[in-house]
Design a protein around this nucleic acid. Structure first.
Lengths: 126, 126
DNA sequence: GGTTGACTTACAGTTAGCTCTAAGGTCTAC
DNA sequence: GTAGACCTTAGAGCTAACTGTAAGTCAACC
C-alpha cells in the first residue's frame, strides 16, 4: 500500500538521502507513514517529484521550489501566485535556451578555428 | 598598456576574487605582471575569459575548463584533443537545450492546468 | 610625510545541495 | 533467537565555486 523510499529512489533516480533531505527542507510536503513510521509514498508524491525534478533540473533553487510547494498547501487562493512563479521560471528557461544556443554557436566557431589550425599544422608537416 | 584587475572585473562581470581564484586554480593561465607585481591583463586574456565564461555558463565544471586551458599551452599537438573536448561539450549543450525545451513544455502544461483550476474556482464564486 | 586607494598573498569562511555515519527500531526467514 | 534487510532520526561531513579577511606593498595626492 504505497511505495517505500527505496522504490521511489529507483523510480525517480533521486537517492534516499536526497528524498529525506527534500522532505526535511520542505521541498517535498510531508510524506505519510505506515504503522512502523516508515515513509509510504503515493502516486501524487511521484507526480509532485516529477515536477520538482523538472524545476530543479531547469535551475530553480531548492528554496524557490519549497516556496512553490508551500503555496500548494494553501489551496485555490494561491493558484494565481503559483502560476506567476511558474511563468517567471518558464521565461528564465527560455532565456537559458537562447543563451545556450548562442554559446553552442560560439563553441562551433571555436571548433572550426581549431580545425583550421590543425589543417595548417598538417600542411606544414609535408 | 594592459588592463587592471578592476577593469577586467568590470568588463567581464566576474569579481576580482573570482579572477584571482581562476588564476590560482589554473582556469586562467598566469597573467603577466607590471613592475609592481600587479596583474596586467591583455586582450588575449579577455578573449580567453570570454570563452571560459561561455564554457562555465553552459555547465562545464572548473576542473574541465582547467584541463582545456592546460592543453592550450601545449600548442599544436594538443589541438585535436581540445577539439574533442569542445565537441563533447557542445553535444552536452545540445542535450540540455532539448531537455530544457521539453521541460518548458511540461511547465506550460502545468500552467494551463492551474489556469483551468482558477477559472473553475472563479465560476464557483458566482 | 602621512593618508588614501588599488593592488598583492595566504588562508579562512560561506553557500547550496547533497551525502554519509551512528545508533537504533521492526519485520522476515532460517 | 538471531541474522539480514529494511527503515528511522540527528547531526556531521563533503564538494564546488566562490567570497571574505588580514596583513602587507606601492604610488599618488595634500
Amino acid at each position: 500500500m504505497g511505495y517505500s523510499i527505496k522504490t521511489i529512489a529507483q523510480k525517480t533516480g533521486l537517492s534516499q538521502y536526497t528524498l529525506r533531505y527534500y522532505e526535511r527542507e520542505g521541498v517535498l510536503p510531508e510524506v505519510s507513514r505506515d504503522a512502523n513510521g516508515n515513509r509510504c509514498f503515493h502516486d501524487e508524491d511521484l507526480e509532485l517529484l516529477s515536477l520538482i525534478r523538472c524545476l530543479k533540473d531547469t535551475g530553480m533553487p531548492i528554496a524557490e521550489i519549497k516556496q512553490f510547494i508551500t503555496l500548494s498547501r494553501e489551496g485555490r487562493e494561491a493558484l494565481s501566485e503559483q502560476c506567476k512563479l511558474l511563468e517567471a521560471h518558464k521565461r528564465q528557461i527560455e532565456e537559458k535556451i537562447q543563451f545556450f544556443q548562442s554559446f553552442a554557436q560560439k563553441i562551433d566557431h571555436k571548433i572550426a578555428y581549431f580545425n583550421s589550425l590543425e589543417q595548417e599544422a598538417k600542411a606544414e608537416m609535408k
